[in-house]
């Protein structure tokens, strides 16, 4: 039995070569309640876009953000340099360290390794959507409690990855934590605190918050 439905007959729109819009409405509920059904961004770019700046509509943290960037601009650089969403950090810029981690349709990905233009039609959630200093998410509160941050530069990426992890592994064990958070690196050495923080959130069952 096929895992996915057979692809639907391409619409006239896409036959003419327009960028395919993947309906964000088909995405399962967001990790954070308010962005469960982000607004659908239209993506009416011509078949060949660029190399100059092209207008994009991106679903970022439940809002439609309009930017004009070249196709070569990564999602990370778009967030940081065009939307002033600087919680996602640029460290390795090569898809290794995880400091740029964001959620794309609820799944953690490296935003440095994705073009902004590719993010159209998907729900992007950055660290900025996961709580505020005044109202920390469960993971963030546990990070503070267990001092899972020192210089703090890897921390937002870790928080995003941990948020997705506890959502997907509500009964995680220590071994699960070790196997499931390998996509983020830290230099100060906060792994002990991160591990404790994640296990605490799992234990209290607040992972969905």
């Amino acid at each position: 039995m096929p895992f996915r439905k057979k692809p639907e007959e391409p619409s006239g729109l896409s036959r003419r070569g327009f960028l395919k819009t993947v309906g964000a409405g088909t995405v399962a509920g967001g990790l954070i309640g308010e962005s469960a059904t982000p607004p659908r961004a239209s993506a009416q770019a011509p078949a060949l876009a660029g190399p100059g700046p092209i207008p994009l509509e991106l679903n970022i943290n439940g809002k439609v953000e309009k930017v004009s960037v070249e196709p070569r601009v990564t999602l990370l650089d778009t967030l940081r340099n065009h939307l002033d969403l600087t919680g996602s950090k640029k460290v390795c810029d090569r898809g290794t360290c995880g400091a740029c981690t964001v959620l794309l349709d609820n799944k953690p990905i490296y935003s440095c390794s994705m073009l902004a233009v590719e993010a159209q039609g998907h729900a992007v959630q950055t660290i900025e959507s996961l709580g505020t200093p005044e109202q920390l998410s469960a993971i963030q509160a546990a990070f503070v409690e267990h001092d899972a941050q020192q210089c703090g530069f890897c921390t937002p990426g870790f928080v995003v990855a941990c948020t997705a992890f506890v959502h997907d592994h509500p009964n995680a064990t220590l071994e699960d934590v070790r196997a499931g958070l390998g996509g983020n690196l830290c230099r100060c050495g906060t792994y002990h605190g991160v591990t404790e923080a994640v296990l605490q959130v799992v234990k209290t069952g607040k992972g969905g918050a």
Partner: peptide
Amino acid sequence: MNAFEYAQPAT
């Protein structure tokens, strides 16, 4: 990276 033209076809 160098500038490039981009397409994301459906078929």
